[in-house]
Amino acid sequence: MNVDENMLLTADSALFVRSEALIGAEGIERFRKLRVAVFGIGGVGGYTVEALARAGVGTLYLIDGDTLSYSNLNRQLFALHSTIGQYKTAAAAARIADINPACTVYQITRHVLPADDGTLPDLPFLPDIDFIVDAVDTIALKVALAAAAESCGIPMLAAMGCGNKLRADLFTFTDIYSTSVCPLCKTMRSLLKKRQVKRLRVLYSREIPNVRSRPPSSVSWVPAAAGILLAGEVLNQVLLGGVSER
């Protein structure tokens, strides 16, 4: 065994030493077996992906068709002057490999949009997924993902509006039908009822938007906080046994 292999083994064994004291070897193993699809890896989803990788999630599917631009620098984890112009999925995969090489990353580098009837296009990886995180902006896709997840019995968390806000401390988890204040939630409630979606766990803000700019304005800390909270909710559900292997 050469020096590089020894160093890699040492790094692998040390990566989760602080985590194992909290969640035990069984928790580490649950995360290793977990397969999570994150739709949208921008301001919110990028931080979700990072937290999942650092926690030891074994397989990540990254779905995003955008490239990184200068306007992303104020809030997106993978946006650096050195990554401008790269696909977000590629920049994310490279960073994950540098953090947790054991994490298997699948890049779905395209814009996923629902068909005219509201159904999702063919996503062959979906039956293999244990958990879906919706961090996209497109309302039609959010609705289609929620309907598909419920139909397939896949646990899902959805981020609601994070733009035009300043208070990261006002996020909360609840069912979509128990939300208030958030304009996106109001629209989602109506559309999900039409699709007969019975429930959807969401992260939403109780903050009244400060402005109503288009595209939505954003700061560094609000989407980041939302992304970390989403990752934590996924992982805590796994630890509490709320997510079974598929």
Rank of each mutant, 00 (worst) to 15 (best):
N74P: 13
K88V: 06
R75A: 00
R32I: 09
A51M: 10
K33E: 06
A37Q: 06
V36P: 05
G40D: 03
G27Q: 12
V44G: 10
V44I: 07
D12Y: 14
T67W: 04
G56C: 01
I63E: 02
A55L: 04
G46E: 07
L15V: 02
F16S: 01
R75I: 09
L68F: 06
T59N: 10
G42C: 10
G42Y: 08
S13K: 14
L68R: 09
R54W: 10
A55Q: 03
S69E: 09
L62F: 00
I28P: 03
S71W: 12
G85F: 15
A91Q: 07
D66M: 09
G58T: 01
G43R: 05
F31Y: 11
V38P: 00
L62K: 00
L73E: 13
T10N: 14
E26P: 06
L73N: 15
N72R: 12
L15P: 07
G24A: 09
F78D: 04
Q86M: 14
R35P: 06
D12Q: 12
R32Q: 10
A90I: 15
G45H: 02
S82H: 11
L73Q: 11
T89Q: 07
T10C: 09
T48F: 05
R18L: 09
G65Q: 08
S71H: 15
I28C: 04
K33W: 02
D12P: 00
R32Y: 08
L60W: 04
I28M: 02
Y47H: 09
F39N: 07
I28G: 04
D12G: 04
A25P: 08
Y70F: 15
Q86C: 13
A55M: 02
G65R: 08
Q76F: 14
Q76A: 11
E26T: 11
R75T: 05
L60A: 04
Y87C: 14
S69W: 03
F78S: 08
T10A: 14
V17I: 11
A55T: 06
G45A: 05
G27F: 06
Q86L: 10
T83E: 10
G85C: 11
L68Q: 01
A51T: 11
A14L: 12
S13Y: 05
T48S: 05
R75F: 02
Y87Q: 15
G24I: 07
E29G: 08
S13F: 07
A90W: 11
K33N: 09
F78W: 06
L9Q: 08
S13P: 03
L15Q: 10
G46Y: 07
A51V: 10
T83C: 05
A14M: 15
L22M: 13
I28L: 08
D12K: 05
F31Q: 03
E29R: 12
Y87H: 14
I41Q: 03
G42W: 03
S71P: 10
A11Y: 15
S19T: 13
S13H: 11
F16K: 00
G24S: 11
E50P: 01
E50M: 01
Y87D: 13
G85D: 12
Q86F: 13
G40F: 01
L15C: 05
F31L: 13
T67M: 10
Q76Y: 10
E29C: 10
Q86G: 11
I63G: 02
Y87S: 15
F78G: 04
F78P: 02
L80I: 13
V38W: 00
K33M: 06
D12V: 03
V17F: 05
M7T: 04
A21K: 15
K33L: 06
L80N: 14
Y70I: 15
G85I: 13
A21H: 10
V36S: 03
F78E: 04
L60N: 01
S19K: 15
